Simulated scan of single mutants.
Amino acid sequence: MTDPLAQDVWSAQPALRIVEIFGPTLQGEGASVGQAANFLRLAGCNLSCVWCDTAFSWDPAQEDPERLPTTMTTGEILGRLEPRVDNPAGPAPAVQRLVITGGEPLLQARALTSLCEQLREFGWFIEIETSGSVSPGPLTELVDQYNVSPKLKHSGVAERARLRYSVLNEFAAMMSVVFKFVVQQPEDLNEIDELLKTLSWPVHPARVFVMSEGRTPDMILKGSRLLVDQVVARGWGLTPRWHTLLWNDERGR
């Protein structure tokens, strides 16, 4: 399913389509794994991975009644995250890291610009999780870290949709970018090797992370054990999924 927002990525939007705001909790995966963070999950995606664990954010057939897409203004979202909006003399929140995820959050890049600008003024650290199929556009200089997760063949998505090389090259040239790949079996690592070779900008191994696909602790641990030796041999990082290991993939954690 493709969200209508994907039809015009750059259109001016007075508000954001979201499915949930939650935290503080832990960033469960990637380069900042284990960091305390708040999460903003946006609605809509331009891909439809067969194993997607957040399909409720873009597929009407899998909607979560407790997380139905809704529209919120930047001011409403900011008020949920930053108490100093209403009390400028008050203390800063203990957790000032926001992970913006989806779906595909960069489909709403223009609408996110104002939110990111205001959060940065309050000293927040901003991460965006993206498939790397949509350019960051106006957000390029406003985000502290991009977690770019290109989808491999096992996602079931056509290559022309999941691998937009001009966009991936744009990300590879940015020092704020790390790459994270969801892997089902060790053979998938060869596919990552080939993908990285096609990019115009070299990606240092320290910027590459691999994560085993799975929705249960047993699946994550079993898959990670199969991957670890080959991942380390390449100089990449192997990331867990703390939200799965700690809370069995419970939503809102």
Score class of each variant (00 low, 15 high):
Leu16Tyr: 02
Ala37Phe: 02
Asp229Phe: 04
Arg251Gln: 14
Asp218Arg: 15
Ile128Thr: 04
Pro136Ala: 10
Arg120Asp: 05
Gly28Arg: 02
Ser11Phe: 01
Val208Gly: 05
Val33Ile: 14
Ile126His: 04
Leu119Ile: 13
Phe181Met: 09
Trp236Ala: 02
Ile220Ala: 08
Ala161Asn: 01
Thr216Ile: 08
Ala55Gly: 07
Trp236Gln: 03
Thr2Gly: 02
Val178His: 01
Leu199Lys: 11
Thr130Asp: 06
Phe22Thr: 04
Met1Gly: 11
Pro202Glu: 12
Phe209Ser: 06
Val231Asn: 07
Arg17His: 05
Gly156Val: 00
Leu142Pro: 03
Val228Thr: 04
Gly79Ser: 15
Arg225Tyr: 06
Glu63Cys: 10
His204Ser: 10
Gly235Met: 11
Arg251His: 12
Thr239Val: 10
Phe171Ile: 06
Ser48Trp: 09
Leu195Ala: 10
Gly123Ser: 11
Tyr146Cys: 07
Ala109Thr: 01
Pro202Thr: 12
Gln62Trp: 09
Pro240Ala: 14
Thr244Asp: 00
Phe181Arg: 10
Pro14His: 11
Trp236Leu: 02
Pro136Met: 08
Asp229Met: 09
Tyr165Asn: 00
Val99Gln: 07
Gln62Ser: 13
Ala158Asn: 04
Phe209Leu: 11
Arg207Glu: 08
Thr198Val: 13
Ser32Asn: 13
Glu127Arg: 06
Leu245Tyr: 13
Val182Leu: 14
Val183Tyr: 07
Gly103Trp: 05
Val228His: 03
Trp242Val: 15
Leu142Met: 03
Gly235Trp: 12
